[in-house]
């Protein structure tokens, strides 16, 4: 990151933080799915694996950035984009479940709509997505970017 200047270094640092939180969210989801957990999040083994995949994308961005290899912006952008889009999908999925339970006259809790670990991981990724997408389009227009 020698040639990375403000605000890139903050985005780079934020990518590191999101890597950690996404990884933790993925592990918790898998543990919940395996029956070892706190009950805070929805048990979701495939979802947990997807979160770990996204964490791997962020980790690749961090590694590429450290060695000044090109591409950290691309990895950070796609990781954040996938996380935010999947969180949106997770809200729709849980809303679907919630409405189905209501319509079938069964007990349903509104909080389940936001209890997917994707949503909590994505909250941190939103500022990253905004910052990195500006950087990405700046790069493509020949602007000042670290690639």
């Amino acid at each position: 990151m020698n040639n990375t200047t403000y605000p890139h270094q903050y985005l780079y640092g934020w990518t590191g933080i999101v890597t950690l939180t996404t990884c933790i969210a993925g592990i918790i989801s898998i543990l919940e799915g395996a029956g070892i957990g706190t009950g805070l999040f929805i048990p979701d083994i495939p979802g947990g694996c997807i979160l770990l995949l996204i964490a791997a994308l962020f980790a690749t961005a961090v590694i590429k950035g450290r060695t000044d290899r090109p591409g950290w912006i691309s990895f950070s952008y796609i990781g954040a984009l996938l996380l935010v889009v999947f969180a949106g999908c997770a809200i729709l999925v849980e809303t679907g479940h919630f409405l189905t339970l209501i319509m079938e006259g069964e007990e349903a809790h509104l909080l389940t709509i936001v209890s997917s670990s994707f949503i909590w991981a994505a909250i941190l990724a939103i500022p990253l997505l905004i910052g990195v997408s500006r950087l990405l389009y700046g790069c493509s227009c020949g602007g000042d970017c670290c690639e």
């Binding site: 691309s74 227009c141 690639e147």
Partner: peptide
Amino acid sequence: TMGRVMPGDLIDQVLTHRLF
């Protein structure tokens, strides 16, 4: 008039990555 690196090219680095 612009640089030839397109956002799509940068995005493709990840979406068509051999591992990811």
